[in-house]
Amino acid sequence: MEYQVKAAFLFNFLKFVDWPAAAGDAPWVIGILGRDPFAGVLEDTVRGKMVNGRRVEVRRYARPADVKDCNILFIGHADFERLGMPAQPGLLTVGEAPGFLKSGGMINFYLEDNRVHFEIRPEVAHAAGLRLSSQLLKLGRTL
């Protein structure tokens, strides 16, 4: 259940980010670095969906060096501590562990009252050339 919500959030983030101009109609890529906690839920969520006329694809990476042409990168558990925090222009990093933002992540999920919430560091995203929508900022806790 939790990961269903997180998958939906990941997908919806695509819509609330002002992405740098992309090449043609290549699909959006949501990547998972390290261990995959979704057990296929993420694929189910994005299957058949289009955002601004482009399909959405899910990819898995083992190391930060593998990450390429990715829009949103999810790093589950505390794998960023083990694998390191990738930073590329135009890459939105999303994690789910305390300290993720402090380590240079942009958006981090947390649970409160049994609901999924998220916290944001907009200036980090801005540094990667991404502008987050004011609505998103309003909904998320800003550090």
Partner: peptide, 14 residues
């Protein structure tokens, strides 16, 4: 339009 995000991120309070 301003409620769209609240809808997709399921935030009725907002």
């Amino acid at each position: 339009e301003n409620s769209a995000a609240a809808l997709v991120f399921e935030d009725p309070k907002d």
